[in-house]
């Protein structure tokens, strides 16, 4: 009896939050957009998502088994990567290409660098970029909505705004336009993003500063800011890809810098580059400088700043 008591260091309780719960919430937050993509692009969207999710989980499992690392597919992080990767693919992409993307994301970007928490960049973003560079034509042939415009025609009487050929705001919000699976329907993405903020899975700082920076720069560049915000992968990127814990700063200050940097690079690519989409590259580039942002944006420690100042003062 006397020796049976457990002795550990404090604290003796932990919060209800677990990595698994967080990843499950992210998956849940992506569901409305998945449903929207199935409505917009047809059953192919669902099949493609299933393919990437299964491929990601299987690759994670196999790699961990291969190198003798503890299998942690139950943490749902591979599921999130799979969904995000699918959301970055056009519904018409051949399955085997999607599986290649999953391999790049899980094995090359995540596991080769040490597994969950050690990847230098967002796996899904790099998977998308690898596919976009390797299979350029397949990746950029955006299918038009499968169920034709009729289903929503009554909802899109608004005049076409912005540049010639651009979609109306309502079309952009509902996602009734060409594009990859998960970036067309802005409304469901915003609902998912707000759910993550509400459940404190993500902080609003990165999405808000990212979107605000793009809006401000669009106005300065003479572009239609609302069009810029709602088109391309910006909303998906801002709420779900840029907020990936592993590859974004932890402090409020760092998040602010990160969000502004993302906005600047995105607009730079969109307005001046030859590519029409800048979100993926903006996130990848900012991912790479996160370690530096982290060091430069540390929080003030209570009672430390004052002492340092007096010390420096004394030295001078």
């Amino acid at each position: 009896m006397a020796n049976k008591l457990i002795v550990t260091a404090a604290p003796h309780i932990t919060s209800e939050d677990t990595t698994q719960k967080i990843m499950q919430r992210v998956s849940l937050a992506l569901m409305p957009t998945l449903i929207a993509s199935v409505i917009i692009f047809g059953i192919n969207a669902l099949i493609l998502t299933a393919v990437t999710v299964i491929a990601c989980v299987v690759f994670e499992y196999l790699y961990c088994k291969l190198v003798g690392r503890e299998v942690c597919i139950s943490d749902f992080s591979a599921v999130v990567t799979g969904i995000l990767l699918a959301f970055n693919l056009p519904a018409t992409l051949p399955w085997w290409m999607a599986i290649v993307g999953a391999f790049v994301a899980i094995v090359v970007v995540k596991q080769l660098f040490g597994g969950l928490g050690y990847n230098f960049a967002n796996p899904a973003i790099v998977g998308r970029i690898a596919l976009a560079l390797g299979f350029a034509s397949k990746m950029s042939s955006y299918p038009l909505p499968a169920n034709s415009v009729d289903a929503f025609s009554s909802a899109t009487p608004l005049a076409v705004v912005g540049q010639a050929g651009s979609e109306s705001y309502v079309t952009l919000l509902l996602g009734q336009h060409g594009g990859v699976l998960g970036e067309t329907c802005a409304i469901t993405l915003i609902i998912g993003g707000l759910y993550l903020i509400w459940t404190k899975v993500i902080s609003p700082i990165i999405p808000v500063t990212y979107l605000a920076t793009v809006a401000v720069l669009s106005v300065l560049a003479g572009q239609d800011p609302i069009y810029q915000l709602l088109s391309g992968g910006l909303i998906l990127g801002a709420f779900f890809m840029a907020t990936d814990y592993v590859t974004s700063p932890t402090t409020n200050k760092g998040k602010l810098v990160f969000g502004i940097g993302l906005g600047v690079i995105t607009c730079g690519i969109r307005f001046f580059g030859t590519m029409n989409e800048g979100v993926s590259f903006a996130i990848l580039l900012m991912n790479l400088v996160v370690p530096y942002i982290e060091v430069l944006t540390r929080q003030d420690r209570l009672g430390i700043a004052k002492v340092k100042k007096t010390k420096e003062g004394a030295a001078k």
């Binding site: 990595t19 992080s77 592993v246 932890t250």
Partner: peptide, 13 residues
Amino acid sequence: SNCIHCGRCVNAC
């Protein structure tokens, strides 16, 4: 399990 750099420890301290 692995640290996922969520920053909860940083922002809670």
